[in-house]
């Protein structure tokens, strides 16, 4: 499998703080790769570094053979990277429809993709004209993912989709993400280890701004010592 995204030795600073100190992540095409690690380890910053929101000070990020370092976030998005940030970040004052319209890149994106999106998330069709702020947490998460599906994206960066949601909703979202992986490669950040282990086929552990271990998900599931050491859960 060839890697669609290759991160090598990136260092990222936020203000004075050295958040990422040498992170390397390889995301094979068509996979669901999950970034695991404790709170504050640098998972979200890794996604933001890919998007160019917190650009890395050194190291390389290559997507489909193109370097992303030094590019502005909108250029990176236009290359086909969809970003679903933590806490959803939907536009609360805009209706569901308008939220999806903002994400359009080609003028017919919305018309082309709307049916597929609504098939994946039937709730959104029902809530079509409601302001995003009136949606429940799960619906907002669906909207945030749907927004990343409107343009043609080859890679989706999804940050903590299960955060703060009820188990039933999490099941729905997991099913949806699984379906998505047929169309796009997915790089996921997930605290909920059960969710991560069911969804992902590869993992990368981010610990204290570094990426010590990565591999196939199956290897990690059996290794309780490793899980306890880096994730603090069993």
């Amino acid at each position: 499998m060839s890697a669609i995204l290759e991160i090598r030795d990136i260092h990222t600073f936020i203000g004075q703080f050295h958040i990422l100190e040498n992170v390397s992540v390889s995301v094979p095409k068509g996979s669901i790769t999950v970034l695991l690690g404790r709170n504050g380890a640098g998972k979200t910053t890794t996604l933001k570094s890919i998007m160019g929101i917190t650009p890395p000070a050194s190291g390389s990020i290559t997507f489909n053979g193109q370097s992303l370092v030094g590019k502005r976030p909108y250029t990176i998005a236009q290359l086909g990277v969809g970003y679903v940030p933590e806490h959803r970040a939907i536009f609360r004052e805009l209706s569901v429809r308008e939220n999806l319209l903002v994400a359009q890149r080609g003028s017919d994106d919305f018309e082309r993709k709307a049916d597929a999106v609504f098939e994946l998330f039937p709730d959104l069709k029902r809530l079509y004209s409601l302001p995003g702020g009136n949606l429940s947490g799960g619906q907002q998460q669906m909207l945030a993912i749907a927004r990343a599906l409107i343009p043609d994206n080859h890679l989706l960066l999804i940050d903590e989709p299960s955060e703060g949601l009820a188990p039933v909703i999490i099941e729905q979202l997991m099913a949806a993400i699984e379906k998505l992986s047929a169309q796009a490669t997915i790089l996921l950040v997930e605290q909920n280890f059960r969710v991560a282990s069911k969804l992902a086929d590869r993992f990368v552990i981010i610990d204290d701004g570094q990426s010590p271990i990565s591999g196939a998900m199956g290897e990690l599931i059996g290794d309780e010592a490793l899980i306890r050491r880096y994730l603090g859960v069993t």
Binding site: F13, I14, Q16, F17, H18, I19, E21, N39, G40, A41, G42, K43, T44, T45, D208, G209
Partner: peptide
């Protein structure tokens, strides 16, 4: 490039 040990890590 401050010494990382001087600053608590925060993930904003």
């Amino acid at each position: 490039r401050p010494d990382p040990s001087m600053n608590p890590k925060t993930e904003p």
